[in-house]
Design a protein around this nucleic acid. Structure first.
Lengths: 339, 339
DNA sequence: ATAAAATACTTAAACGCTTAAACTGTAATA
DNA sequence: TATTACAGTTTAAGCGTTTAAGTATTTTAT
């Protein structure tokens, strides 16, 4: 086990003090002469020196580490990476962070335990939180004093930055799209409608559109559950029993996919018998038949934006609350029919 | 900005030396009296003390951090999390690691840069490598001296542990399944067949089965490309031109899914016109129509196993090479027809 | 010519832990 | 009674950085 090369070795090799080495690797080179810098760099290269992050973050209280909190299923506590929405998002985060010299620590959280522990334990420089959690979770986390960016959750607290889309508007245009195609009995398949949650916003958008078209809201057309494939499957049964419904707005593609799967296997034709519109435009949406018309958001970009925002907070110490709203649009494929 | 609670504060509170605190938080309590331990724990709780990992790993050279290397696309360098295979795998890793008090740092790698940097920089305790890389990548990494578990790559080097499935056997049973259903002109859609790669093994299994059934191997039936949805799509065109082929073995579900999508949109019926068998049984395989018959491996478990293995290496300092082979089996759905 | 300012470094304390070794008081053994 | 053993705890030397403050030399201003 050969000893690893430390800053001391480099200092000796370059014939300067370790402070000088430190200044060079931190690009604080204002007061250093060209020759010294070159000599140091040469020594670093020659010895193959790699700074020790543990030591650096102990001394500097920075870790170049970003925490990413990602929802986990209630049953088995695994993170929801099976949901393509999350995996696309993480791709965006990972790549952007990597380009900037950061690494991400992605983990699920036991809501009862505080994520605060992790963040102070690991000296995280910032946290990106995906999804919605109980209010107390956020309150705990505020204590960490580190920059936090929320994605897909509406939290009024001034402490948190966020990157979002206009979910209400998304619900509105999806529903309106269906209405314009002549549908009047429109089912809504959605996650649990929680106060200030993404689902609630999309649900409100759904009602906005109905109101605009003077279509009475029918609570029997609303199906609330868990946002996953299985729930989509099970909703199909209920919808097939309700002969009035000619179209459904699923507030997540994954729900639409489950729904369509069961519908198809019951020989219900899409879009001829029932039209379906989704939300998100997750990658695997391409895989299914017929192509799913959906409200597209750029998920990858969402991840990228979250990282850029948090790095801005870290570097420029932004304190005022930043809310970034990304655009959405309908992409038409084959799952909706005009009637 | 209130100062964070350190081991010193706890020591003062509990009226012992910091060493004692350290022994307690590291569970090295053999020589400590019951009362002292209790007093320390009370102090820890009272002050809400969270040990600083940077300091710990600086002093102990352990980080409770596992590196996970995951393949990235050649075009945009993003990690392949869009491929459900990888996201399932990561779920397994993350959850298992979390249970054991470890965190994972997941990242893609520029092959030209050494991942070695990251691993020494971050004091990683172990590395799990998913996929196959140029030999020099492995050679570099050996220098790190830390435990490494390879998944989905065949590397003869004695240094690396691995968790695998019997890919050759998988290729064999898939092909045999098709042969037993009466198919004789069987296409193979596969990733680049690299020496000692997973694709090569499955390809060899394919040939094994053909040989067993005395079916001559026809190189024109082999389609080699990138393992992604798009390549599956493009292979469909070629297969439609080749009227002889009645069945295809796709060495990854994602390829099968692309293939089927294009086939279906060209009104080729599955399995009536062409049978398809896949490999992996990724989660989203359920989403598509018709259900894909495939060689199932437990991807989640693969991740779990990789973590357990690496933790064993870390804790028990296993030195002899460990190879864990997980079982596989065919799951029959609707994409293959007897002829 | 002299003071002030700028340049190019170095010194050394601090960051918060781990751990081998030393120490202390008491109990067991010769 | 002296010696050894041992349980329980402390001491103190690291671990590899960062960074405020200090120093010596040179340049600029007056």
């Amino acid at each position: 086990m050969k000893k690893r090369v430390t800053i001391k070795d480099v200092a000796k090799e370059a014939n300067v003090s370790i402070a000088t080495i430190s200044y060079v690797i931190n690009n604080k080179e204002e007061n250093l002469s060209k020759e010294t810098i070159e000599r140091v760099n040469a020594a670093i290269k020659k010895l193959n020196y790699i700074p020790n992050m543990s030591a650096r973050s102990l001394a500097s209280k920075k870790s170049n580490l970003l925490g990413v909190v990602i929802p986990q299923t209630e049953v088995n506590k695994q993170i929801m990476l099976n949901n393509p929405f999350y995996s696309e998002f993480i791709s965006g985060i990972e790549y952007t962070a990597r380009l900037e010299g950061y690494h991400i620590i992605m983990s699920g959280v036991e809501i009862d335990k505080s994520y605060l522990d992790i963040s102070v334990k690991r000296n995280l420089d910032g946290i990106i939180i995906l999804g919605m959690y109980p209010q107390e979770f956020y309150n705990e986390l505020k204590k960490s004093q580190i920059p936090i960016v929320l994605v897909d959750s509406y939290c009024n607290d001034h402490y948190f930055h966020s990157v979002q889309i206009n979910d209400r508007y998304g619900g509105y245009i999806a529903t309106k799209y269906l209405l314009e195609k002549g549908h009047r009995n429109i089912g809504l398949v959605t996650g649990k409608i929680k106060k200030e949650g993404v689902s609630e916003k999309r649900y409100l958008g759904y009602k906005d559109a109905l109101a605009e078209f003077k279509v009475p809201f029918n609570p029997n057309y609303v199906f609330e559950g868990i946002v996953d494939y299985e729930y989509g499957l099970s909703v199909a049964e209920k919808i097939m029993k309700n002969k009035d419904i000619t179209a459904v707005f699923a507030t997540a593609d994954i729900l639409a996919i489950g729904l369509m799967k069961r519908l198809k296997s019951a020989k219900v034709r899409i879009p001829d018998d029932i039209s379906v519109i989704g939300f998100d435009d997750i990658y695997i949406t391409k895989f299914i038949d017929p192509g799913l018309t959906t409200v597209k958001q750029n998920i990858y970009k969402k991840g990228e934006t979250a990282v850029k925002l948090i790095l801005n907070c870290i570097n420029k110490k932004l304190t005022s609350k930043h809310e970034i709203i990304l655009p959405i649009e309908i992409v038409e494929r084959e799952s909706v029919k005009e009637i």
